[in-house]
Design a protein around this nucleic acid. Structure first.
Length: 490
RNA sequence: CGGGGUGUGGCGCAGUUGGCUAGCGCGCCACGUUCGGGACGUGGAGGUCGAAGGUUCGAGUCCUUUCACCCCGACCA
């Protein structure tokens, strides 16, 4: 008897459950809104991390690490930056506990108060720029191209598992350059690195663009972003790259002597992606049977499930499975044999579908006789019986095909849910259906605010590689050079 | 921080206008039969009903306070 499946609209948690849970600590816990990443979920994150890390290094970056705690005063330096983060910071005020003399357990020792409070980093621009100041004196010290893998904390008023947890894992790149153009190039380069990763590894199509003024990062001159569309019709910002101008250099007084011997402020960028990407991965691909993982990021590519009666058959199939496993491993395929004797094979089928393992091989006595194996692919749920001979090639090709197919499917979904709209009336109707809307906008914040208030939709980005097209703003009728992307977002 | 909702074994829930020993499904344990798509039978373990206080002969149920979580806003990756 198959169990009832929770529908996608009702609940994403079915898919999440293999990967992550809410932090489940004592009552009154202040860590609400945090998450526990389970081993299987972390294995995916490690794959993402490894791939991105290599991409960063291939583009000339190096890893470094900076402190978790940032002196409060650092935040006062860059005005718009503090505006953006002040409301969501965790602050350390004391450094010691003691036993309560009244016997109520442990209390904060009020005598151990810090002179200056420490802020748990919500992002590291301030402490990094304070550090860079001592690293930079001459144009010969530039560029500095550092990346940091770290956790950060943002005390959001409302959290959402994966998409907006109070603590999350991410990487943040922070670069310093001698010229404006070099910094702009860096910011653009990195948003393209992100797009490459999200599309070609995660299989999620994205639109690369610039943020409008009101959606910009606190302290940035320009914010580039990649925007993805989830299956429920909402947009998700999957990564950002910021051209910071000289804002942080000025705030932290980071000057260098240029080739002419004159002092100038350093030009900066920062860029980051987080565990939110795992949310994107899940929400973009999963179906009612559970996760669908792209082979390039799946912790297990292939699971082999022996189907047997009795110990004799099991042993026979077990050793045959090992042979198949070895053949595939020689081709770099990650294979798991699930020969657990205490759950039935149908249960295993369902379990690995829930986990999103791309390919399943089932081998039973009949297959053993015929020298065949049943191959099932997770993305289409199709099953086929193929010869064991040449299985490594077959599976290797299949994995590549699945990787491409997942992307195509997501792209098709996005295209079917992207609409050009020319009037505000039509816009209001279309936005209710979800998806991306391409419309003309007069470039003003006022119009953007009005649209947001009336429809809850925001400008996700001003696409970079979309042809210019003259038109008029759908709201005000003022001239516009190009269409921008509107959507409701997470 | 505003509006709405929910707290009952590990998970999901039922429990009527207060009334007997607090139930059900899943899961868990034991034994047996099963095993090519989430098995079935029999037996069993597991609960301070979110917390504190109150009303009452009697509270999961009523009242007060409080805490947490979820959803919708505002804020944000």
């Amino acid at each position: 008897m198959a169990k009832e499946v929770v529908s996608r609209k009702e609940n994403y948690s079915l898919w999440y459950n293999n990967l992550v849970t809410k932090a489940d600590l004592a009552e009154n816990s202040a860590v609400r809104g945090c998450m526990v990443i389970k081993p299987y979920g972390y294995a995916i994150w490690e794959k993402m991390q490894g791939t991105l890390d290599k991409m960063f290094k291939d583009t000339g970056h190096v890893n470094a690490y900076f402190p978790l705690f940032i002196p409060k005063s650092f935040f006062s330096r860059e005005a718009s930056h503090v505006d953006g983060f002040a409301k969501e910071c965790a602050v350390v005020t004391h450094y010691r506990l003691k036993n309560d003399p009244d016997g109520n357990g442990v209390i904060v020792d009020q005598e151990a108060k810090l002179d200056e409070e420490l802020v748990v980093r919500p992002t590291s621009e301030t402490i990094i720029w304070n550090t860079y100041k001592s690293w930079i004196q001459s144009y010969r010290d530039l560029p500095i191209l550092c990346n940091q893998w770290a956790n950060v904390v943002r005390w959001e008023m409302r959290t959402r598992l994966f998409l907006r947890t109070a603590e999350f894992l991410w990487q943040e790149g922070h670069t310093a350059h001698a010229t404006q153009q070099e910094a702009i190039d860096e910011a653009e380069k990195m948003i393209h690195v992100y797009a490459d990763f999200v599309q070609n590894w995660m299989g999620v199509p994205v639109i690369i663009g610039k943020k409008s003024e009101s959606e910009r990062f606190a302290g940035a001159v320009d914010t580039y972003a990649i925007e993805a569309l989830m299956q429920d019709g909402k947009a998700l910002q999957a990564g950002t790259s910021h051209f910071l101008g000289q804002n942080f250099a000025k705030a932290f007084d980071v000057q260098f002597a240029n080739k002419d011997g004159k002092l100038d402020y350093v030009w900066a960028t920062s860029w980051g992606v987080s565990t939110r990407l795992m949310g994107a991965l899940i929400m973009a691909h999963s179906d009612d049977n559970g996760l669908i993982l792209p082979p390039k990021l799946a912790p297990i590519h292939v699971v082999i499930i022996p189907i047997y009666k009795g110990e004799e058959e099991l042993n026979l199939l077990r050793s045959q499975s090992k042979i198949l496993k070895k053949k595939m491993e020689e081709r770099g395929i990650i294979v798991k044999i699930d020969d657990r004797d205490n759950v039935r094979s149908g249960f295993k089928f369902a379990e690995y579908e829930l986990k999103g393992v791309p390919v399943r091989l089932a081998i039973g006595p009949r297959d053993y006789q015929n020298g065949t194996v049943e191959v099932a692919r997770r993305d289409t749920l199709e099953k086929q019986t193929v010869l064991q001979e040449g299985i490594a090639d077959y599976v290797s090709n299949l994995l590549e095909e699945i990787q491409v197919n997942i992307f195509k499917k997501a792209l098709k979904f996005r295209e079917e849910n992207t609409h050009k709209v020319d009037t505000y009336e039509e816009f209001k109707k279309k936005i209710e259906e979800g998806g991306f809307i391409l419309a003309h906008w007069d470039g003003t914040s006022e119009t953007e605010v009005k649209v947001k208030e009336e429809t809850k939709a925001t400008i996700r980005c001003i696409p970079l590689d979309m042809p210019e097209e003259a038109g008029v703003c759908m709201v005000t009728g003022k001239p516009s050079k190009q269409r921008v992307i509107f959507a409701r977002s997470y």
